[in-house]
Nucleic acid binder design. Structure first.
Length: 424
RNA sequence: AGAGGGGUGGCCGAGUGGUUUAAGGCGCACGCCUGGAAAGCGUGUUUACGUGUAAGCGUAACGAGGGUUCGAAUCCCUUCCCCUCUGCCA
């Protein structure tokens, strides 16, 4: 969430940013936040004064009891009783005010970067780079869901039997290819200085709140009721929450992590070719990048991440394009996001395989993730993340783009990981 | 899962109702001392909110949340976590 102080001091900038996102009743919401903050400050001051007085009197009571002046003590006790009533009222008012303020802040999305194009939907995203020639497939080319069946490398029906739709079983060379991709991605990331982590796949409520999936996106996560844990929809949650309530030391920067995890998403409400085959699953694998940066370095870090992901796709020789998301398509928490899409030749469409974002201090504010600046003052750090990469759609594109009369060929860079060069 | 013991500052650790303004130690920073360093000595060393131009001042925080009391690290309740033993288990 945004910092109240930032909203108060930069009201016009905030309103302009929210207008870009077409947020309804923005100025009303912002005014109410400013008003609530004012009330909060006043109430805090009033309460502190009363508590200060109460503390002073309590000490005096103690001394009177010690010296045996019971009647004096009792007089003060009566006085404290009235003060206590007042402080109770004020403290309730303060709690109430803070809750209202937080709830109001939760509704305000992040302010888009000036680079973010105007626009209402994905149609307004701007392509900033295209790479690779779209492959011309041979006449018998098929979509991946037919190929995986033909070569028996991914079994959707089996997954339905075991669990339900959207939980495929990878078999034989399919499983091996999946594992090869994971290892390849992790190696690329660690070579680029990202520390590899293995993190829990279930997280508690505090972590869900920290990165902002809770409370609003509760329905999109699988929940273990008895223990009150959530299955992670992305490893961003466990990785970023390492830094919840942390003050990072100067020497720790830059902080670069990568992790492979399965991701679990309930994703209700989609249909048709969007969910066909590997296009959208309830469980899928992903290798993630997370960076914690000093504010002055975060955009350099974002560019590095984009460059890094592009390099991987080029090594795989998958045609891709990079989109700069427009304000209307930009995620709630993001300031600037680049989406990577690869060309799925047999489907004749682009598939999103990575999303790289700078959240600036929006996430850090909820996480209470800070660092000390040059003057020794605590400042919120910046958080960034990106996929490198989401497995299923890479699989889909690979299988489709690399098919020919002989079967599905394996990109050269992966062959030392798979140990075979064709699936047939 | 059962029984028992714990959770105090960056770290160790004292503290069972009232000058706790959380002892003492370690670490760290600065200063003195020194040719230089170590040792020694001195000073300082949390976070959040409020207030103030600032120095500072006020409030809150002893795992978390409630309660008792004029007053709680200390007593009571709830809850989370850690350790030991027993059980179960890859």
């Amino acid at each position: 969430m945004l910092q109240v102080q930032f909203i108060v001091e930069n009201k016009e900038t905030v309103l302009k940013g929210l207008a870009k996102r077409n947020l309804k009743n923005a100025s009303q919401k912002i005014n109410s936040i400013i008003e609530l903050d004012k009330t909060r400050k006043e109430t805090q001051s009033e309460l502190d004064n009363i508590l200060s007085e109460t503390n002073k009197l309590s000490k005096e009571i103690g001394m009177f009891f010690k010296s045996g002046e019971t009647s004096k003590a009792n007089t003060l006790k009566a006085k404290v009783a009235t003060l206590k009533e007042e402080s109770k009222k004020l403290s309730e008012k303060l709690t109430d005010c803070k809750t209202q303020l937080d709830n109001a802040l939760y509704e305000i999305p992040n302010i888009p970067n000036t680079k973010v194009p105007e626009g209402n939907s994905e149609d307004d995203n701007i392509t900033i780079k295209e790479w690779g020639e779209l492959p011309k497939l041979y006449s018998e080319a098929k979509p991946h869901w037919e190929l995986v069946k033909q070569y028996d490398i991914i079994d959707f029906e089996l997954g339905v039997k075991i669990t339900g739709a959207g939980f495929p079983v990878y078999k034989g060379k399919g499983a091996k290819l999946q594992r090869a991709l994971i290892n390849y991605f992790l190696d690329k990331n660690t070579d680029a200085g990202y520390q590899e982590l293995q993190v829990p796949h279930l997280v508690n409520e505090a972590s869900g709140l920290g990165t902002g999936q809770l409370p609003d996106k509760e329905g999109q996560m699988y929940h273990c009721g008895v223990d009150n844990f959530y299955l992670i929809p992305t490893s961003e949650i466990p990785i970023t929450n390492i830094y919840r309530d942390v003050i990072v030391k100067e020497a720790q920067f830059p902080i670069k992590h990568t992790a492979y995890t399965p991701c679990f998403r309930r994703e209700a409400g989609s249909y048709g070719k969007d969910v066909k085959g590997l296009n959208r699953l309830h469980q899928f694998d992903k290798v993630e990048l997370v960076r914690i940066e000093k504010p002055s370095e975060s955009y350099k870090a974002l560019d590095e991440m984009v460059e890094h992901v592009a390099n991987i796709l080029e090594e795989l020789r998958l045609p891709y394009r990079i989109l700069c998301l427009c304000a209307g398509d930009l995620g709630f928490t993001s300031v600037l996001t680049y989406d990577f899409e690869v060309w799925s030749a047999a489907q004749g469409r682009w598939l999103e395989v990575s999303s790289v974002s700078n959240f600036e201090n929006f996430q850090a504010n909820r996480l209470k993730l800070r660092h000390k600046d040059e003057n020794g003052k605590s400042q919120l750090a910046h958080t960034l993340n990106g996929s490198s990469l989401a497995l299923p759609r890479i699989m889909a594109a690979l299988i489709e783009n690399y098919q020919d009369e002989n079967g599905v060929n394996i990109p050269e860079v992966l062959q030392r990981y798979t140990g075979f060069d064709v699936i047939n």
